[in-house]
Design a protein around this nucleic acid. Structure first.
Lengths: 215, 215
DNA sequence: GAATGTGAAGGTTTTCACAGCA
DNA sequence: TGCTGTGAAAACCTTCACATTC
């Protein structure tokens, strides 16, 4: 009985973690798993696991636990990783090229279909079997190729302009690696990966260990 | 009058954002900034800004606002980015090599001093001016070189073993790119960058836009 | 007058605890 | 008996509102 309540960011992130754990449990031929086991695997509490899952339905059996395979598939459905997504990547610099070869992406159904850059020397060349296109045509090519998710890996100065072009192509999901706060209209989902910020978090913990709860 | 209360993760992350904004304001020769201005720059509320800062002291002047340069320096101090940190990177694959050239790191005082890999073909070779060492000697070399922060960019199967070696070297801060939940003892700070998880978050939003608050 | 610093209020997330079911 | 599902309680985080200071 899923209620139409807003789901918190943390619940969604934990869903990813449950999913990962369940994939492993399934590989290891476990049939069922209790909220306690699942919680231990991901260093969470059993109540948290049950509450999170309860937002989406009643997947378990009292006295027994959750059926591994079935729960895995249900969560895959909820997360949208039971289908393929067309992904484009803008900015084929250090991070961009690393992402092209990042195996975890393809494994989960995220297919990198298009690459873009603004460097004339790169445009037209092949990168791991994908031709690099001119970012000048970004909006049109995203539309023509039915891209659903775009990854931004350009320098911060160019990120907002690129982002605006992406939004114009009606793309509703953006993953941003540029260390800048992008503005997107309502209805567009934006996630940020900011490595410098994570390092700053760590240095904060090193300097202020009395404030900072362990790891 | 900083109280000895635990600081929330979100406050620490916002501190990084204030810092970035203040660096820019200082470059643009602003002398003072109000909580309202700072909030607008980072899409937050003025009350949030004031509350966050108040955990660490009273940096502003009533009726005037905060002195930009001074606040920037104070936050740099709090975040620990007023000093240099010795960083090592384990795993010189796609992501690892991208990180070596990531300019944002060095700019903030995070100096990559050592590189490690387990691939005999890579060990001993030069990567952007840094020699790649054998991960077999990880613990000893981290100790000998007074490394304070280690970045893990190895495949998930090897991540926990690498992590254990890092902990043995008394390193207290780890940034992990492997899609796995590492176990670290109390007192060690661990941050995770999980790109697959961010993409899953986006696909969740695409599939469940009714649950998912905008961007 | 203008904007900080901060208790108190309000909202959200997590944990508790137990009823309910296999 | 064992473990889920879930209201209620507790903890936590954000916003409000205003006294306070320049």
């Amino acid at each position: 009985m899923p209620k139409l309540k807003r789901i918190s960011e943390s619940t969604i992130s934990r869903l990813s973690r449950y999913y990962r754990a369940l994939v492993q449990l399934d590989k290891d031929n476990y049939e069922t798993v209790s909220s306690k086991d699942l919680a231990n695997l991901e260093h969470l509490t059993p109540a948290q696991v049950r509450k999170d899952l309860s937002f989406f339905g009643s997947f378990g059996t009292r006295g027994l636990g959750y059926p591994v395979r079935e729960l895995k598939d249900k969560i895959a459905r909820i997360l949208g990783v039971d289908q393929e997504w067309n992904v484009a990547l803008v900015g084929i610099g250090n991070i961009g090229s690393a992402l092209v070869s990042y195996k975890e992406f393809a494994r989960q159904g995220f297919k990198i279909k298009l690459l873009f850059d603004n460097d004339q020397r790169k445009i037209g060349s092949n990168h791991k079997g994908i031709v690099i296109r001119d970012v000048a045509n970004l909006t049109r090519e995203l539309k023509d190729n039915h891209i659903e998710i775009v990854v931004i890996a350009v320098p911060p100065q160019q990120a907002q302009a690129v982002c605006d072009d992406i939004v114009k192509a009606d793309v509703k999901a953006i993953l941003n690696f540029a260390p800048i706060n992008l503005k997107v209209p309502k209805g567009v989902s934006l996630r940020n990966e900011n490595m410098a910020m994570e390092l700053e978090h760590l240095s904060f913990c090193l300097v202020n260990d009395h404030y900072c709860e362990q790891g």
